[in-house]
């Protein structure tokens, strides 16, 4: 199976301060569903950020979607990010844009036509059961609904990899289940690789997944 993420002796640090991820090696196969767990402050989110190039490796190799991320040029990084779907705990929607425009953002960036983008957005809003909320702005929606908009945005451009940082951290049980179902659906139906950073792995998932645990700056697979 192809590796969508490959890390070899990877070390990560903010500026020149203390190293957060220390000399770790791992790989994530294409089409897999992966959980990364670890204690608070263990560096889970930092590791996830390195996958979309927000943090450059201090040492070692990190290859995502076939692109080496050490010393990557901004133009190349932009191209890589157009194939990623990112979901955050705090949703990170553009508040002054309608939910349709938020979902459309990756499509606009990737250069899809207006007709294709509009039809894709309609389809996704139906998929996340928000078609009755069209025309509204993020702040008019509940937390669960905002995260569904963020999910629709992450799925809109058929990414090769979805990176989710505590996607249910701010949600109630019902909304959390909706988000897990959406991530599961993307993985099973679209064969999209999903990497989720979380504290707790949900017990209701009906799929095979891999579990990595981060401790003392080293990522190990939990078998």
């Amino acid at each position: 199976m192809d590796k969508v993420i490959y890390a070899h002796n990877l070390s990560l640090a903010y500026n020149d301060r203390e190293t957060i991820i220390n000399d770790t090696s791992f790989s994530i196969e294409s089409g897999s569903f992966v959980f990364i767990t670890g204690a608070s402050g263990s560096g889970k989110s930092t590791l996830l950020k390195s996958f979309y190039g927000a943090i450059t490796p201090k040492r070692g190799d990190l290859i995502v979607g076939g692109v080496e991320l050490s010393d990557i040029a901004p133009k190349k990084l932009n191209l890589l990010r157009r194939h990623l779907g990112i979901v955050f705990q705090n949703y990170r929607l553009v508040n002054e844009w309608s939910i349709e425009k938020n979902v459309m953002l990756p499509l606009i960036i990737s250069g899809y036509s207006k007709e294709v983008s509009t039809s894709q957005v309609e389809k996704l809003l139906r998929h996340v059961k928000l078609s009755h909320q069209t025309g509204k702005y993020p702040q008019e929606l509940s937390g669960g609904e905002q995260q569904r908009v963020a999910m629709a945005r992450a799925l809109s451009h058929n990414p090769i990899l979805i990176l989710a940082d505590e996607p249910t951290g701010n949600l109630d049980d019902y909304s959390s289940q909706v988000i897990w179902n959406l991530l599961q659906g993307a993985n099973l139906q679209l064969k999209t690789t999903v990497v989720v950073v979380t504290h707790n792995i949900p017990k209701t998932l009906n799929l095979e997944y891999k579990h990595f645990h981060l401790e003392n700056g080293v990522l190990n697979e939990v078998l």
Binding site: A54, N78, L84, I86, P106, I109
Partner: peptide
Amino acid sequence: TERMSIMALFGAPVWL
């Protein structure tokens, strides 16, 4: 800043 950061996360070039 927030909008520009979000757009950057999805690979928008500087001009966009």
